[in-house]
C-alpha cells in the first residue's frame, strides 16, 4: 500500500502528472493576466478561453526541427534540458502538499527548506551551461548575465526565506507551515520578507523586469538562442514548473502552507500559488527591463539590507514572544 502511495506521490500528485498539467495552467493564467493588463485578449482559441494554448505550444515545439550547433558539445547540449526538468520536478516533491506527516520521511525532513532553495538555484546553472555550450555569441553573453544575476538575487532570497524559519524555529517546510497555521497572526511579521521573496523569485524566473539574460531586443534569444524543437519545449516546461515550485515555496513559508488533507490541500495550493503568480504577472506588466548593473546594485543596495532588517525584526519579535 505504501509503495502504491509513494508511486502515486511521485507520478500523479503532486508529482509529474499534476505538475505538468498545473504548470501549463499557470502559464495560461500568467499569459492571460499579462494580456489583460496590456489591454489585449491573450490566448483565446485553443480550448475554453485558450486554456489549452500552452499545451498546444509545447506539442507544436515537440514536432519542430531540432538543431544542434556543430561546435556545441552535443551530449551536454542535449542533456541539459532533461536535467533541468528533472531538478525542478524533484524540488516540487518537497513541497508539503500531501502525504506528509510529523514523522521524518523521504520528502519531509529537517533542512528540506535548504534543499528546495538549492534545487531551485540549480536551473540557473543549467541555463548558464546551456548558454555556454551553445558557442553562440548571444548565448554566451546571456550565460554570463545569468551568472551575474545569480549573485544578485540569491542572497536576498535565502535571507528572506530564513526569517519565517527563525520565527517557527525549524528548517522543515511542513513544520514551518504548521507553526503558522497555529499562529496565523505571526504571518504579518513577515510581510517585508514576502515582498523581497516575490521580487527575487521574479529575478530567478528571469521575467520582466529581470529578463536580462534573454532580452530579445538586445541578445536575440539569450541562452536559448541555439535551442529549438524538443529541447526548447523542455526548457519552457522547466520555466513553467519552476514558477509553480517557486510560488509553492513562497506560499508554504509565508502563507501558512496547504492544510486540509488531499482535497482542501489541493484547493489551498492552487489558490495560494495563483495569488503569488498574480503578483508576478502584475510586476511583469508594470515594469520595463532594467540593465544588468542596475539589477545587481538594486539587489545589493535595497533587497539584501531589507532582508537583513526583516531578520532583525523577527529576532526581536522572538525575544518578546518568549
Amino acid at each position: 500500500m505504501d509503495i502504491l502511495k509513494t508511486l502515486l506521490y511521485l507520478f500523479v500528485y503532486p508529482g509529474l502528472l499534476f505538475l505538468l498539467i498545473y504548470s501549463t495552467f499557470c502559464e495560461w493564467f500568467d499569459r492571460k493576466l499579462y494580456a489583460r493588463f496590456q489591454n489585449r485578449m491573450g490566448p483565446l482559441h485553443t480550448g475554453q478561453s485558450g486554456i489549452l494554448q500552452p499545451i498546444a505550444d509545447i506539442i507544436k515545439l515537440l514536432f519542430k526541427e531540432d538543431i544542434v550547433p556543430e561546435k556545441a558539445d552535443k551530449s551536454i547540449f542535449s542533456a541539459l534540458p532533461v536535467f533541468g526538468l528533472a531538478i525542478v520536478c524533484t524540488a516540487a516533491l518537497y513541497l508539503p502538499v500531501w502525504h506528509y506527516s510529523t514523522k521524518v520521511s523521504f520528502n519531509s525532513f529537517p533542512g528540506d527548506l535548504i534543499v528546495v532553495a538549492f534545487l531551485l538555484s540549480l536551473p540557473t546553472l543549467i541555463f548558464f551551461l546551456a548558454g555556454w555550450h551553445s558557442t553562440n555569441f548571444f548565448a554566451t553573453i546571456g550565460a554570463v548575465r545569468v551568472l551575474t544575476m545569480l549573485f544578485g538575487y540569491e542572497v536576498p532570497l535565502l535571507l528572506a526565506l530564513l526569517s519565517p524559519a527563525i520565527l517557527a524555529d525549524s528548517w522543515r517546510l511542513s513544520e514551518i507551515a504548521a507553526f503558522y497555521q497555529a499562529n496565523p497572526f505571526l504571518l504579518l511579521a513577515n510581510i517585508l520578507g514576502f515582498c523581497i521573496a516575490v521580487i527575487t523569485l521574479q529575478a530567478k524566473l528571469e521575467r520582466v523586469p529581470f529578463d536580462i539574460p534573454h532580452a530579445e531586443t538586445e541578445i536575440v534569444g539569450g541562452v536559448f538562442t541555439e535551442y529549438s524543437g524538443k529541447k526548447l519545449a523542455f526548457f519552457r516546461l522547466l520555466s513553467d514548473i519552476e514558477m509553480v515550485v517557486g510560488a509553492g515555496l513562497i506560499a508554504t513559508v509565508f502563507m501558512a502552507g496547504f492544510p486540509g488533507g488531499l482535497w482542501w490541500g489541493l484547493l489551498n495550493f492552487v489558490i495560494k500559488t495563483m495569488i503569488v503568480i498574480f503578483l508576478l504577472s502584475a510586476m511583469r506588466a508594470a515594469c520595463s527591463r532594467i540593465r544588468i548593473d542596475q539589477m545587481v546594485s538594486f539587489s545589493w543596495r535595497y533587497l539584501a539590507p531589507l532582508a537583513v532588517l526583516q531578520i532583525f525584526i523577527i529576532i526581536i519579535l522572538k525575544g518578546f514572544l518568549r
Partner: peptide, 16 residues
C-alpha cells in the same frame, strides 16, 4: 521605445 526597453505594456497601450 517601450518595447526596446522591454516595457511591452507601454508598447501595447500606445499602439492601441
Amino acid at each position: 521605445a517601450g518595447h526596446e526597453a522591454g516595457f511591452d505594456t507601454f508598447f501595447m497601450y500606445t499602439w492601441r
